[in-house]
């Protein structure tokens, strides 16, 4: 279903709020995986605020949709999404990374309400998600499982083992999304370990591939609608994103996989996020991503 203008505005506002809260959380935590949080934020926003069937007041609701952050290192981007929805007290974000806090760099499903799997070791999420999707099907439930992968993460063999199995078992209730920000820790993905032709690889493994602009809600919505209609093959959405999206002095720079902000950088980051939001709201194409 195409987004209304109002929907789109609401999602953009929410994504802006969450990016800002993520910057704050990184400051409270001392440092964090900022690049991959910013590239994934619009994807998490549209899932949690438009597509997923959830009830933060009833987090164990049996028929909830499941989300698995397979690129678990961006807990510092995910925790604000959950806190903002009321899965847990927002004040807890101020203790992110502090000794004894339930919130560490990689979120623990046994400590953080709303988190479905304790990820952080890359490559695990698609297998767990496939298991959940098959669990739903076997029990005749209609909820969906969404798995968000990093592109560097797709170097892991386990991702492809799961992909082969997802196609084999025709897991059309599983929605795989790749945050294709083209960066990993040691450099650009194509320089460290080339993934291209990436879409062809997924196709060869039996997936229907939908490419989307991971920072355009219309584009993401169209892709998620295609996934919802899948009947034969599982769908993977390759969301083309920008690492550090919204913060101009880090955006596209693989060196900002992980980092911290001093007072000056925090202010600059927030100014940049405000500019990014304003440009996006005014419908400018190719804005200051």
């Amino acid at each position: 279903m195409a987004l209304t203008t109002e929907d789109k505005r609401r999602l953009e506002d929410k994504a802006h709020e969450l990016r800002t809260l993520c910057v704050d959380t990184i400051v409270w935590a001392g440092s964090g995986h900022v690049g991959g949080s910013m590239s994934a934020m619009d994807i998490m926003t549209i899932l949690y605020h438009k597509y997923m069937r959830i009830d933060p007041k009833n987090p164990a609701m049996p028929d909830r949709d499941r989300f698995i952050l397979s690129k678990g290192h961006v807990g510092v981007g995910y925790a604000p999404v959950l806190a903002d929805l009321g899965y847990f007290d927002k004040e807890l974000l101020k203790e992110y990374n502090h000794t004894g806090s339930p919130l560490g760099m990689h979120l623990d499903s046994r400590k953080v309400t709303g988190v479905e799997a304790s990820t952080g070791s890359l490559g695990h999420g698609l297998a767990i998600g496939l298991g959940m999707a098959l669990g739903a099907r076997l029990q005749g439930r209609d909820w969906k499982t969404y798995v968000l992968l990093g592109d560097g993460e797709c170097d892991e063999g386990e991702v492809w083992e799961s992909a082969m199995a997802a196609a084999h078992f025709k897991a059309t209730n599983l929605v795989t999304i790749v945050d294709r920000n083209k960066c990993m820790i040691d450099g650009p993905t194509e320089e460290v370990m080339a993934l291209e032709p990436f879409a062809d690889k997924w196709r060869a493994f039996g997936f229907e591939v939908v490419e989307a602009d991971g920072h355009d809600f219309d584009s993401l919505a169209a892709a998620l609608d295609t996934a919802a209609a899948a009947r034969e093959k599982p769908v993977v959405i390759i969301a083309n994103t920008i690492k550090g999206c919204g913060i101009d002095f880090i955006s596209g720079d693989y060196k900002w996989h992980y980092g911290g902000f001093d007072g000056e950088k925090t202010a600059k980051a927030k100014e940049s996020l405000a500019r990014f939001h304003a440009a996006r709201a005014s419908g400018e194409k190719g804005t200051a991503k």
Partner: peptide, 8 residues
């Protein structure tokens, strides 16, 4: 890598 949690 204390702050990274059990996965690390």
């Amino acid at each position: 890598f204390g702050q990274a949690g059990t996965t690390h």
